[in-house]
């Protein structure tokens, strides 16, 4: 299990244990144990289960969320609900004397407050999610599946792109609107890897992926294809538009001064870029195959061009 959350939620965990400890000691000090003949085990089981489940929820919230305002709200709401349920549960085993009966009277109050707080927290969570979605919008389209992301770049993988291209093909065929696919390949990435190590290569890929997403529209989608190759889907666009985008991407990547670790030396990358327009008459497999072929012929052309210049 991932235990790193303990470190950055340490104060919340302290509050949790302190509060639960306080509630338990308080109730046991005030009341005395019921004789076993009066116990209603069925009720105790249900209430105990509820207490346990809210505790599990608190655990999941802490594990899945970074520290912050929304997390604090969620935590306090759940904690208050948990206190109510715990009091209810302990009630099954303890009888309070007359002068401490107020405890049973107010036991459901924390739950109400907790639920109100939870609602506020969920509203904030919704807003937070909207912000995150806005940040993600160029890396995903209409459909979220975390199992298809690429671990190195944080973009979606080729598998996701294949699905999206499939949808796009259907759409293009139906509405008779062309779309363009762009492929971007980093030149001499192998050499970079050999020189600076593969870990730095992975970081470079991540940054290049980010630069590409900065240069495309909201409805476009950028994914990592394989190795040092990226693929961009541009719906409702023609080659002319793609060429303009290609120029933008080429320009901004040419100015990306990548630094290896703490070394001040700037590393500039050159890319090979190609794009092709599709009208929906192909299959998704053919699209990617054609793109790979196009990429290869573009590379060969570039090499020829380059050789000529050298000569």
């Amino acid at each position: 299990m991932n235990t790193s959350f303990i470190k950055y939620h340490f104060h919340l965990l302290t509050i949790l244990f302190f509060t639960l400890g306080a509630v338990i000691t308080c109730t046991f000090n005030l009341g005395y144990l019921k004789p076993s003949s009066e116990l209603d085990y069925f009720d105790a089981l249900g209430e105990g289960g509820m207490t346990l489940m809210t505790l599990v929820w608190i655990g999941f919230i802490l594990m899945s969320r970074p520290a912050g305002k929304v997390t604090n709200w969620l935590f306090s709401g759940l904690l208050l609900m948990n206190i109510s349920m715990l009091l209810d549960f302990i009630d099954e085993f303890i009888i309070y004397p007359q002068n401490s009966a107020w405890l049973t009277a107010i036991e459901s109050l924390p739950a109400l407050v907790g639920m109100v707080i939870m609602s506020i927290a969920l509203y904030h969570w919704y807003q937070e999610q909207m912000t995150i979605n806005a940040q993600l919008r160029r890396t995903e389209r209409f459909y979220r599946d975390h199992s298809l992301t690429d671990f190195i770049t944080g973009l979606y993988s080729a598998k996701y792109m294949k699905k999206q291209i499939k949808h796009q093909l259907l759409y293009s065929k139906k509405h008779n609107k062309p779309f363009t696919v762009m492929m971007i390949d980093i030149r001499q990435f192998d050499q970079f890897n050999r020189q600076h190590g593969h870990q730095q290569g992975d970081i470079l890929l991540r940054e290049i992926g980010q630069v590409i997403t900065m240069n495309i529209r909201d409805q476009d989608l950028a994914c990592r294809y394989a190795s040092d190759r990226f693929v961009v889907l541009l719906p409702n666009s023609t080659t002319t538009l793609a060429e303009a985008f290609a120029w933008h991407i080429d320009n901004s990547l040419a100015n990306l001064a990548f630094k290896v670790g703490s070394d001040p030396q700037a590393n500039y990358q050159k890319i090979t870029l190609c794009s092709k327009e599709f009208d929906g008459s192909q299959s998704d497999y053919q699209v990617l195959e054609l793109m790979s072929q196009q990429m290869d012929s573009t590379k060969k052309q570039n090499n020829k061009h380059h050789n000529k210049r050298v000569a």
Partner: peptide, 15 residues
Amino acid sequence: VQHIEQYHVHLNMKA
């Protein structure tokens, strides 16, 4: 295989 893109890039398939 499903991951045909790796063959395209790493093995120069189709080139």
